[in-house]
Design a binder for these strands. Structure first.
Length: 416
RNA sequence: GCGGGCGUAGCUCAAUCGGUAGAGCGCCAGAUUGUGGCUCUGGAGGUAGCAAGUUCGAAACUUGUCGCCCGCCCCA
């Protein structure tokens, strides 16, 4: 027996409708917010991620599925969606389209990590990326879209936002952080000592107790934002408030991907274990330039579909019912089953979900099976029906039986 | 990469002191000959994760190994 690879999950026939519901909801939100779908390859040149996501990040350093293909090229299974979206935007010259360019995707992603609750090696994201708008109103729109998506799914989360500044104010802030942390370095973990040189921002996010204590008194980015970034953040907060979106400012959220600038945000839940971030995103005004294109502001988010599903199940969120066939056509013997098959083919050609027997079961067993399928009607074809050209159709909830002429079955089924 | 927990039927789980494997659910069939849900009866289904060791005897005890789960790190 060969079993499923570590950190991956099957979606079973009894569960797929839940995925479809989440995906359909995502597409509906995208439609209302005027986003167009994009699809990028599952693998890209490794360099896209080392440059795009950032080679100081854990995602790039230890979590990528990287391999050499037969032509000796280094390729990587996408660990996230933004870099590929940016590559698509640049490579296809979308910079010459009317701005902003608003896109979304639903895609598998891959990270080589130890699996735990809400964390898989293959997972799925619904994400949106919007290129070419620098206004805080665009930030607000993206957060509103995420919020609306979560609300439609009936899940409760808290929204945490922060601003991590632009190139200029971040440089100043990093200097301030280094100045603050320098005398404390001896008491901090090795990871933080490494972060000190590369990206001191992330020292704020360390979970080690000792580091946490030291970081607690560190200067806050919000005190170092340049006038432009401060206005941007203030404008965003005002807009969110005006739209009735509750949020808290959490100066600790810095996010682990290097491309973020200015606004960052997370929708977090406590109901799904330690990995509580259901949706996260932010602005990445420097990414396109980093990838070699002309500078262009952009912002986006990604929501983890498995985490959402987990959250929905843990909080008994409502799913719509799974689809069921409308009618089961039972046949008494082989001749009748042949007639039942014909009838079902006809109904299906008319767009009616119909089912019939393929196992040679008794009529009784066919009824049992039909009941388990949850059909509304069962039609029985026996010798009498073959002779008379009328079929008895039973309503499974009321138990009533009606004789219907073969030619009128479709009309009967669609009359309500 | 590190820490903790757990591996018995498709699923959820039992079995006194080590004595050679069970229930519920699910599946299939039947309860007088063409009709579901409830009930009853029967059936199929297990190399006890795997491998060593201790023992007259191991699902149980020991060791190793593999797998899964949860947590750390990080993130969706």
């Amino acid at each position: 027996m060969i079993n499923i690879p570590k950190g991956t999950k099957d979606v079973l026939p009894s569960q797929s409708y839940k995925w479809q519901y989440v995906e359909n909801t995502a597409r509906e939100v995208a439609r209302v917010f005027n986003l167009k779908e994009i699809r990028t390859p599952v693998f890209e040149h490794t360099e896209l991620f080392t440059r795009g996501v950032g080679d100081t990040t854990d995602v790039v350093n230890k979590e990528m599925y990287t391999f050499e293909d037969k032509g000796g090229r280094s390729v990587t299974l996408k660990p996230e969606g933004t870099a590929g979206a940016a590559r698509l935007f640049i490579e296809n010259g979308l910079a010459s389209s009317p701005m902003p360019v608003k896109t979304y995707y639903i895609t598998p992603c891959f990270r080589y990590e130890r699996p735990q609750a809400g964390r898989l090696r293959e997972f799925h994201q619904f994400g949106m990326e919007i290129f070419g708008a620098e206004s805080f109103t665009q930030d607000a729109e993206v957060i509103l879209a995420a919020s609306s998506f979560l609300e439609k799914l009936g899940v409760r989360t808290r929204l945490e936002i922060n601003s991590i500044g632009c190139k200029t104010c971040r440089a100043e802030y990093n200097a301030a952080l280094r100045k603050y942390f320098a005398p404390h370095l001896d008491g901090m973990c090795p990871a933080c000592r490494a972060r000190f040189g590369k990206n001191p921002l992330r020292m704020l996010d360390c979970k080690e107790e000792a580091c946490k204590k030291i970081a607690a008194a560190a200067p806050a980015i919000t005190d170092y934002l340049c006038a432009d970034c401060a206005d941007h953040f203030a404008g965003l907060k005002n807009l969110l408030t005006a739209q009735g979106v509750e949020y808290t400012v959490n100066p600790r959220i810095v996010r682990g991907l290097d491309y973020y600038t200015k606004t960052v945000f997370e929708f977090v839940s406590d109901a799904i274990g330690a990995q509580g971030t259901v949706c996260g995103g932010g602005r990445y005004d420097g990414l396109l330039e980093e990838l070699g294109a002309s500078p262009l502001p952009a912002i986006g988010f990604a929501a983890g579909i498995e985490r959402l599903l987990l959250l929905m199940e843990n909080t008994s969120a409502a799913f719509p019912e799974d689809g069921k066939p409308l009618i089961y056509v039972a046949g008494l013997d082989d001749a009748c089953r042949a007639e039942a098959f014909k009838t079902v083919c006809f109904l299906r050609s008319k767009g009616i979900a119909a089912e019939t027997d393929h196992t040679g079961r008794s009529v009784k067993a066919q009824f049992k099976y039909a009941d388990k399928l949850g059909v509304k009607f069962v039609a029985v074809i026996g010798g009498d029906e073959l002779a008379s050209g009328e079929i008895k159709i039973k309503n499974m909830s009321s138990g009533e039986q009606t004789a219907v002429k073969c030619a009128d079955i479709y009309a009967y089924l669609t009359k309500e």
